[in-house]
């Protein structure tokens, strides 16, 4: 063995192995070319451009808040999937399953990670919006992506709101009762909304407590079994599905609108 070869570190040897090279074609990214290839060749990293202006990697400029929001979405997805193994969305079991999650289940902080992560995500999304506004990054050509971002913020709040009901404790049902009572007052579509009385055929009201938008949201006239199931499905599948579509558009458009904003 030559002297040079014996100096090869473990990582270098690993990087030259057939397995590594089959996964990451460029090998250990050492040269400029290999490093750019590491980004372009990775399905996960190619969200990023290969090169960035210097200010774009400064935390003082980006605050990392957009990235952290996405990271939290991933954390919440993973912890959420784990919670789904144990949680049953029925009035009979929901509350006791939540207690079991803390007391019986190994790694009993999954619910804490999920709940605090959700609160943190609301915060990071707001702060991301604040940063984008304060740097003027909403301006053309990024105005459409700003709009997508506003929708993503709304979706984040709705995700958090639907999840709020699932523990099925006093905090949950009353917070959701207060929140969904608003839907009753939707103009035309809520039974106590202005204009709803106009939607009638003769004496028959089309919009009443059993057919209005609140009824559709709750699956009933009050927060009950059907609401729990409805919010569970929305929380675990419905809203995340929509969120992922909008996130895909959001990230795609960052690149298409010229990458991260910066002064010309």
């Amino acid at each position: 063995m030559s002297k040079k070869k014996s100096k090869q570190t473990l990582i270098e040897r690993m990087g030259n192995s057939q397995i590594w090279k089959s996964i990451i074609r460029s090998g250990i990214p050492r040269t400029r070319r290999q490093r750019m290839h590491a980004i372009l060749g990775s399905v996960f990293l190619h969200l990023h451009p290969a090169r960035l202006p210097k200010h774009a990697v400064k935390i003082g400029y980006t605050w990392c808040m957009g990235g952290l929001s996405f990271f939290l979405f991933v954390v919440l997805t993973i912890t959420g999937i784990m919670l789904m193994f144990y949680y049953r969305p029925t009035v009979e079991y929901a509350y006791t399953d939540i207690i079991d999650l803390g007391e019986q289940v190994p790694l009993g902080i999954m619910r804490e990670l999920h709940r605090w992560g959700a609160h943190a995500m609301v915060l990071t999304v707001w702060l991301h919006m604040l940063r984008v506004f304060m740097t003027g990054s909403y301006k053309p050509p990024r105005e459409f992506n700003w709009g997508v971002g506003v929708l993503l913020m709304t979706i984040t709040l709705f995700l958090s709101f639907t999840g709020y009901l699932l523990p099925w404790d006093q905090l949950a049902i009353w917070a959701v009762t207060v929140g969904t009572n608003m839907a009753r007052a939707t103009p035309f579509l809520g039974n106590e909304g202005p204009g709803a009385a106009m939607l009638a055929i003769g004496d028959i009201n089309l919009v009443h407590a059993g057919s209005d938008v609140r009824f559709a949201l709750l699956g009933g006239r009050f927060v009950g079994e059907a609401t729990l199931l409805r919010f569970y499905v929305l929380h675990c599948i419905g809203v995340p599905f929509i969120a992922m579509i909008f996130m895909a558009v959001h990230f795609w458009r960052i690149r298409k609108d010229g990458g991260i904003s910066g002064p010309l």
């Binding site: 400029r32 980004i39 990293l45 990023h48 960035l52 202006p53 990697v57």
Partner: peptide
Amino acid sequence: KVLVWPDLV
């Protein structure tokens, strides 16, 4: 410009 690998990742 800086390289995303390693400066950003």
